[in-house]
Simulated assay, not measured.
Amino acid sequence: MTTVVPVLTQWFGYMDSDDPDRVLAMIADDFTMSVQFSTGAGQSAEFVGDRAGLVAYLAQREKSTLIHHIDVGTVAGEYELVVGRTTRDGAFEASFNATAQLDSAGAVRRLLIARTPEISFVR
């Protein structure tokens, strides 16, 4: 497997920045997403929707506090898939996987992200 996943690398780079709203320029007209966000101990929230759902998700998240690290990634046709982790001030916070389906122009059509602090793939 590779870690060369250009779209998701850019996506998480934007999400980790002071201006995460730049991801809005990366989505297709028919964009749909689901972010399953666990805070641990069985507590979680799901953020779903189209462009408006992504705008709402962006509005509620902390800016420039978490760093996404892609540990494994692959491209399979129109899909990019990754397994990674987030850190806060250098310390492990959560593991995540993400799957993006891209359109013919490379825009994100579908996005599924799941994260939890309960499992770490780091040895």
Rank of each mutant, 00 (worst) to 15 (best):
D71P: 10
S64L: 07
I67L: 08
L81V: 12
K63E: 05
G49I: 02
E62K: 09
I70K: 08
G53C: 08
E46I: 14
H68A: 00
V55N: 04
G73F: 11
A41S: 15
Q60C: 03
R61T: 06
V75D: 02
S44G: 14
A41P: 04
E46M: 14
V75R: 12
L81T: 07
A45P: 09
K63Q: 10
Q60R: 06
H69P: 01
L66T: 01
V48G: 09
L54K: 02
L66N: 04
I67N: 03
G42I: 07
G73R: 10
V82W: 10
E80S: 11
A45Y: 14
G42E: 08
S44N: 14
R61Y: 05
E46C: 09
R61L: 09
A41D: 15
L58N: 01
V72H: 05
A52E: 11
T74Y: 08
G49M: 06
E62G: 01
I67R: 04
G53V: 02
G49A: 07
A76N: 15
Q60F: 01
Q43Y: 12
A76T: 08
G53W: 05
L66K: 09
K63D: 00
R61S: 06
Y79L: 06
D71S: 13
D71I: 13
Y57N: 04
A76V: 03
L66R: 12
I67Q: 01
G77Q: 07
